[in-house]
Simulated assay, not measured.
Amino acid sequence: MTTAMSPIARPRPLADALLPRTATVSTALVVGGALLTAGAAQVSVPLWPVPITGQTLAVLLVGSALGARRGALSMVLYVLLGLVGLPVFADGASGAGVLLGPSGGYLLGFVAAAALVGRVAERFGDRRFTAALLSFLLGTVATFAVGMVWLAVALGLDLRHTLEYGLYPFVLGGLAKALVGAGVTSLGWTAALRPRRAPGTMD
């Protein structure tokens, strides 16, 4: 005989453990995720042809916290904000030229990464550090995969130069961001699942 999974044990994004899942809340979360990514993009180390930024960490956290659909929508909104001219891309850049340039594939990869990480959170859960880390590593791979394909096309690179320009400089940073993101997510779940005292009670 099967038993229904309790609401506490059921896999779900962190946002759903903290906030009601209403249209208003979901809209605010999607917008907030896009703004968080825009802010992280300004933490940048100039590098040709693709800069090192804090965007990837924000993407992973947004996907994990919001889930697949809202996480992907948040990244789509982020890209659209940049396309219409708001300075949300790395170093305050904006416009279609960024999306069509060497780093454009990484921006599209953010959508895939947020959706993948969010799907893992919804389907399997990411409350444990190891589960979150594996999810974030998969999301990082998704970003690199899409980004490097477009980088090779945009610059006409062979495989060796694609890896040299589009992967090797980012491996250690990607691992560090996945570790930090997994730690933040794990701490967030610890706080979310901590028993709350009723008003007026004492320890």
Rank of each mutant, 00 (worst) to 15 (best):
A191I: 11
V25H: 01
G33Y: 00
A4T: 10
Y78I: 04
P102G: 06
A40F: 14
V180W: 03
T162C: 11
A90S: 11
A198E: 13
L193D: 15
A34D: 08
S186H: 15
L138F: 12
A65H: 02
R10I: 02
T130F: 08
P199I: 01
L60G: 02
L86T: 10
L66I: 09
R196I: 05
S6M: 03
D91G: 14
S6V: 01
G139R: 03
S6I: 00
I8Q: 15
S94D: 08
L100E: 04
G71K: 01
G173I: 13
A9S: 10
G67W: 00
S26F: 10
L151S: 04
A23Q: 08
L193W: 02
R70G: 06
S26P: 12
V117D: 03
A198W: 12
G95D: 12
L35T: 00
A93F: 07
L29H: 02
A34M: 07
G71D: 05
T185R: 13
V184I: 15
L193R: 14
A65S: 11
F124D: 12
S64W: 01
V184H: 14
M75H: 07
L77P: 09
S64D: 02
T56H: 08
I8S: 13
V84P: 00
A34H: 05
A114Q: 11
A41S: 09
V111L: 11
L86V: 10
T2Y: 15
V184Q: 14
A93Q: 14
D16K: 02
V43I: 15
I8D: 15
S26H: 11
V120F: 04
A40V: 08
R197L: 14
L159N: 07
L151P: 04
Q42E: 03
L57E: 07
A113S: 13
T27M: 11
L73C: 10
M202A: 13
A121F: 04
L179Q: 00
F129A: 14
T140V: 09
L77Y: 10
L187M: 11
A28Y: 09
G105K: 02
A115G: 06
P13V: 06
V111N: 08
A114G: 12
G54A: 01
P199A: 09
R10Q: 13
T37H: 01
A93W: 04
T3D: 12
V149N: 05
G200P: 04
P49R: 14
T22H: 05
L179A: 08
G188A: 12
A40W: 03
A112R: 01
L175D: 04
A58H: 10
M5T: 13
L66W: 05
G105A: 03
E122T: 13
V180Y: 03
L83Y: 05
F124P: 10
V30I: 15
T185E: 11
P102R: 06
L99G: 06
A114D: 11
V153A: 14
G67K: 00
T2S: 15
L66H: 03
R119M: 10
A93E: 09
G54N: 00
A115L: 05
G147Y: 06
A96G: 15
G188D: 08
L73V: 05
L151A: 05
A96S: 15
T201M: 04
L175E: 03
R197G: 07
S74C: 09
A34Q: 04
Q55R: 06
Q55L: 06
R128D: 10
V184W: 14
T3P: 06
A17N: 07
W48L: 08
R69C: 09
A131G: 10
V146I: 15
